[in-house]
Design a protein around this nucleic acid. Structure first.
Ligand SMILES: NC(=O)c1ccc[n+]([C@@H]2O[C@H](COP(=O)([O-])OP(=O)(O)OC[C@H]3O[C@@H](n4cnc5c(N)ncnc54)[C@H](O)[C@@H]3O)[C@@H](O)[C@H]2O)c1
Ligand SMILES: NC(=O)c1ccc[n+]([C@@H]2O[C@H](COP(=O)([O-])OP(=O)(O)OC[C@H]3O[C@@H](n4cnc5c(N)ncnc54)[C@H](O)[C@@H]3O)[C@@H](O)[C@H]2O)c1
Lengths: 264, 264
DNA sequence: TACCGCTTGTGAACGTGTGCACAAAGTCAG
DNA sequence: CTGACTTTGTGCACACGTTCACAAGCGGTA
């Protein structure tokens, strides 16, 4: 029931940012070709967006250390990517480099921030103030980067009213009122898995359009809501897979030598 | 200096699991073509591995509810993916379905666990027992899924010796000894960013081959070590990008109507 | 001004991953 | 046993993302 769609994370495109069916069935080329900023923004691949965020952090660190310009080679090394990829990523947002010289750090920071929409503050609400919720509420890294945690919610009556990380916990029934008042644009779900979908529905009803989900469940949301999930169990299992693969490799090598075959 | 390579997560392949230079420069086809299990494992795309972990969780839930068989349609719906993609993912690990019927839940669980290497336990060590480290140490979801948290480390003398989530915190100088003794195969880094690289180096020296990094820094590791990172700031910024894109879209629509052009 | 060396920006080739659509293969009723 | 129906497994085409390689452009130098 309802809009059923996978959450997309880095992990493969899933249903891509597809134009609505209604839009596709209108084959007539629309009005004026390119509302510049908008088209550019839409054209940036999701994977590149995630990397831009990384570049931004590296650039900030460089700026603090007094760097004025940076070449694609330096920046890519610091960000742990291929330099060609870096240049292509930057080309999605425009041409702000100087050939033969490099990029001006401040300019690049500004432009990336603009594209990522960081010129505006995005209030964050955390729902489920348990182990993880406490950690998130106490974390200083978010406010510093333009994401003030401005609302906390839980069902536990012992928690409601208690201040965590400087702000009081509200009951989840207050989600609509508090989210509206504080203009929450991002909701973070840190409840037990069984409660996640219900909490998500409430956030969506309250007008929250972006959700970061820590509960290991697949959330169902309407099309206009963006969900990203952080699934630690999956991360560990992927690592486990690599351990297993390595073990197999080693075993294969062993077997090879036991067979009396010398290679290389 | 040192092997420089980006961490790979869902976010695009980066330097792909490239064969060693040494291997490439040996153009002679090697001994016996295919050590079956090994080749199969290697062929599974990273994105598919991450999804297999999700299927596994959904299957476990279904099993608890008494389901015996499941069709690709049902399972894919529950996992939030396309049913064709699900079948393709499952085909990477073999043919365990029955046409006209579906998959036997227990069989599928077994096979996925085998491929992901979950038949073996993977001891986890957490380094940096602050906000996040506490949450991780207290989290019950890991041991239950075959990832016992069996060692905790910190530098803070006030923390060393204190039990968190049932086990005592050790000093990071004990990493080699404790990791060896408890056969730690996965290290989790939850220290402040400046300490992350040093901690990583220590873990690698201690023989840990897989690392899950929560600190917002790009870790440099030798080729044989697998790193995955969880970067919440990046997640939020990607969401922010989507908010901005949406805002632009809306603005574009407005502009269009203001221009007196009626479309649709 | 003309040249040279350096770095960007990008066209094009490539590889990987996704989704469609259908043959193959099974179940079940009669 | 046959035929209708269901669902898997996969070949294929396509889209997306990565990488290569190089022309274009800039600053510095003679
Ligand atoms: N703690 C971790 O390190 C960790 C790691 C990976 C995943 N997770 C996931 O994150 C989520 C939270 O984990 P945790 O360890 O903080 O759990 P927790 O049990 O410590 O906290 C859950 C909190 O959610 C509250 N809650 C329960 N139902 C609620 C509802 N309907 N609405 C609002 N709040 C509600 C509870 O009162 C509690 O405070 C879980 O889904 C867990 O699987 C946690
Ligand atoms: N708390 C969050 O919700 C959150 C969210 C996103 C990212 N992070 C990242 O996770 C990491 C940890 O965050 P936190 O909030 O738990 O920080 P924290 O300051 O609460 O805890 C850090 C812990 O690491 C320990 N530590 C410091 N140097 C160390 C070293 N060299 N070796 C071992 N331990 C050392 C400290 O003693 C402290 O206990 C940080 O890198 C942070 O950026 C945290």
């Amino acid at each position: 029931m309802a809009a059923q769609r996978g959450q997309r994370n880095g992990v493969g495109g899933d249903t891509p940012p597809a134009p609505t069916a209604a839009e596709i069935t209108t084959p007539i080329p629309r009005v004026a070709e390119v509302p510049a900023a908008r088209e550019r923004a839409r054209a940036i691949p999701e994977a590149a967006v995630a990397r831009l965020a990384v570049y931004l952090r590296v650039l900030s660190a460089m700026q603090e250390q007094g760097a004025v310009t940076v070449s694609s080679e330096e920046l890519s090394a610091a960000a742990g990517v291929n330099s060609a990829k870096l240049r292509k990523d930057l080309s999605y947002i425009g041409s702000y480099g100087t050939r033969g010289v490099g990029y001006e750090v401040t300019v690049l920071i500004e432009e990336i921030e603009r594209i990522l929409g960081l010129t505006r503050k995005h209030s964050v609400a955390v729902v489920g103030i348990g182990n993880l919720g406490h950690a998130l509420a106490n974390y200083g890294g978010f406010p510093g980067r333009g994401f003030p945690v401005s609302a906390l919610f839980d069902v536990d009556p012992d928690l409601v009213g208690v201040p965590v990380g400087g702000i009081a916990v509200h009951h989840i029934d207050d989600i609509p009122a508090v989210c509206a008042e504080r203009e929450v644009s991002i909701g973070v779900i840190a409840t037990p898995p069984p409660a996640a979908q219900a909490v998500c529905d409430r956030l969506v009803e309250a007008g929250v359009q972006c959700i970061l989900n820590f509960a290991p469940v697949v959330l169902q949301v309407p099309d206009h809501v963006e969900v990203r999930k952080v699934d630690l169990a999956v991360e560990l299992q992927v690592l486990s897979f690599h351990v297993a693969r390595r073990a197999d490799d080693a075993a294969a090598m062993e077997g090879r030598q036991v067979n009396g075959m010398v290679v290389s």
